[in-house]
């Protein structure tokens, strides 16, 4: 999960711990500053912009430049030779044609779709169930809820390492457990079978994403007034019916945000797949992101790696637009 998720979580915690922001609105100081006219006003705004310059410069260098550079490189034959000769001839759309035409792309695109859909479905359903559960205030609920954040805070590579051992075919804890219950005859090759590797990777990613979903959805649930449930109970709606007719409709704006952010973050997941399977066996867990990594950093075909990266950006952008629309509708509500 990405960094913005952390902001969302921190913000969600903020809304649940602090009642409301107080003090005068933000506009007052600036209204006062806007009064002076002409030169003074311009100088003032130059001073104010100076505070933003380092951040803007950083964003341009470390986010803007890579996007542009990637776009340029994707139209070049940029490979190992380029690092010696410094030459990267223009090849037009050849990289895109090559990448889209390769048999791995179909596999990687399908895997990306399955990985994203599976991860989001699992994280969201379990996350929502836990969020609803934690909404009942019971002894220790706050403590348990904050401890639940741990899987999300661990370095992905550390989680990957422990899961790799849990899912180990011969001595992994999962197989030991399943064999003890006689659910499977012998070691299930979770990470080494072409039919199971993607399932296993999705499972681990669900585990990582649950805390994020719980936290944001819990914050959304807290904003639904208890009175509505009381009123619904009077109308005979409790339990599932209360969830369906009160919780779900009122939670929809938060749900939209969680789902779209989840998709955007899941599309670019790389660490956990590299740690668990490396995209294998036989590309069975290869996604567009891991394939882009492999092309650039294992085969040093940066042109093709960039082209694939741009396709990923394009897919993310579509969901980003959906996100912006969803969040604007959320504000209007």
């Amino acid at each position: 999960m990405g960094e913005l998720a952390a902001a969302e979580i921190a913000a969600a915690q903020r809304t649940t711990t602090a009642p409301a922001s107080r003090g005068p609105g933000r506009g007052e100081a600036s209204a006062e500053q806007a009064r002076p006219r002409g030169g003074r006003r311009r100088r003032e705004s130059v001073y104010q912009w100076a505070f933003l310059v380092p951040a803007v410069a950083y964003l341009i260098l470390f986010f803007g430049y890579p996007v542009v550079k990637n776009l340029v490189v994707s139209f070049q034959d940029y490979g190992t030779a380029t690092f010696y000769t410094g030459e990267a001839p223009w090849v037009g759309f050849a990289n895109y044609a090559k990448v889209l035409g390769s048999s791995i792309f179909t596999t990687a695109a399908l895997n990306t779709a399955l990985f994203t859909a599976g991860s989001i479905a699992g994280q969201f359903v379990i996350g929502l169930a836990l969020a609803v559960f934690f909404r009942k205030r019971f002894p220790l609920s706050g403590l348990l809820r904050s401890l639940l954040l741990l899987p999300w805070l661990l370095p992905l590579i550390a989680s990957g390492a422990v899961w790799k051992w849990i899912l180990d075919k011969d001595s992994g804890a999962l197989n030991q457990f399943l064999e003890a219950l006689h659910l499977v005859p012998n070691g299930v090759p979770w990470l080494t079978s072409t039919s199971l590797a993607l399932v296993a990777v999705v499972g681990v990613n669900v585990w990582i994403g649950i805390p994020f979903n719980v936290t944001i959805l819990y914050g959304g649930l807290q904003d639904i007034p208890d009175e509505l449930y009381e009123a619904a109970a009077l109308d005979g709606a409790t339990g599932w019916r209360a969830f369906r007719h009160v919780t779900w409709p009122l939670l929809r704006p938060v749900v939209n945000v969680v789902l779209v952010l989840g998709v955007v973050y899941t599309l670019k997941v790389l660490d956990i797949i590299l740690a668990l399977t490396g995209g294998g066996p036989a590309n069975s867990s290869q996604t567009i992101a891991t394939e882009s990594y492999a092309l650039s950093f294992q085969e040093f075909r940066f042109g093709e790696g960039s082209a694939l990266g741009n396709i990923l950006v394009l897919i993310s952008l579509v969901f980003a637009l959906i996100y912006l629309r969803a969040s604007r509708r959320g504000v209007e509500d």
Binding site: L59, S292, F297
Partner: peptide, 28 residues
């Protein structure tokens, strides 16, 4: 705390930066 022109663009840039896959940044 300032109301300078362009703050919305900066905030929008921050939002968009989150959509950029790490591998794209690493590539470049």
């Amino acid at each position: 705390h300032f109301k300078v022109r362009g703050t919305n663009i900066v905030l929008f840039g921050i939002l968009i930066s989150q959509m950029i896959p790490g591998i794209v940044v690493a590539n470049a």
